[in-house]
Design a protein around this nucleic acid. Structure first.
Ligand SMILES: [Mn+2]
Ligand SMILES: [Mn+2]
Ligand SMILES: [Zn+2]
Ligand SMILES: [Zn+2]
Lengths: 129, 129
DNA sequence: CCTAGAAATGATAATCATTATCATGACGGG
DNA sequence: CCCGTCATGATAATGATTATCATTTCTAGG
């Protein structure tokens, strides 16, 4: 059975995530939460996983293999340079409409999506390319 | 300076990738290539990285943290279940048009994109959800 | 064709984010 | 208040990826 209310850890994780402007890593989250309450790193990971399955939190993976998390309300996407690794945010989500129509047409329950463009930023494409 | 032609490893990696129907991991690629020529795992990773920077190969990261690679021509996307981890392919890429227009409007050189929906597949949403 | 410097390679060790384990603590119904 | 269940924290283990470094392969001259 799905749990009825959030655990202490889940509450803390979600609250901190909702305060962030940008997606952050589990480790960073751990550091932030620890300033306010006793918590273990494993618990942060467990809470993130649970919140993902509840459709409250989404994730993306950086080029360095770090997973970043954010609240689903924050529907942000990036163009990421394969050379220097920098990420440049898009102004808007190009999938607003599509996701809605998919939610109806499919038997799959969609919670969130990831969309990211990869290539070379201007400086990097000028020099190395 | 950008190298002019592909190295032996890059050629092998790209050739094998183009034969695949689905994205595969670096380790799997390593196993496949080793059947035909002497190669090291590190070299496979190096070739994949180089091919990515050339816009020939793209990547995505599974829920288990494995990175999968495929030739860019193969523009495939998935809906992935956060519970059982299964991935269900989409019929078409919903971004065909958008990517083209972005390629012109932006100073960022786009090589490829990733798009993935996450949620619960029907079986999983019935039981656990 | 031969040679020296540069680039690529393979074997191996090291890294490090994430997971698994397990003993302990909190919780909720009876 | 008591017991079974779930949550938690500390710590060890995992495993994909990366760094290292000695060796081999290329390449551009000569
Ligand atoms: Mn979006
Ligand atoms: Mn696509
Ligand atoms: Zn760049
Ligand atoms: Zn499922």
């Amino acid at each position: 059975m799905t749990q009825v209310h959030c655990t202490r850890a889940q509450t803390a994780v979600l609250q901190v995530l909702q305060q962030q402007r940008e997606p952050i890593s589990a480790q960073a989250l751990y550091t932030l939460i620890k300033q306010q309450q006793r918590i273990g790193l494993a618990t942060v990971y467990r809470a993130l996983d649970a919140l993902k399955r509840m459709g409250q939190v989404q994730h993306r993976v950086t080029l360095t293999g770090e997973t970043l998390y954010n609240a689903v309300e924050q529907d942000r996407h990036y163009m990421t340079c394969l050379d220097c690794g920098q990420s440049f945010p898009l102004n808007t989500c190009p999938l607003k409409g599509l996701e809605l129509s998919l939610k109806h047409s499919s038997s799959f329950t969609i919670y969130y999506h990831t969309l990211e463009f990869f290539g070379l930023c201007e400086p990097c494409s000028v020099q190395g390319g």
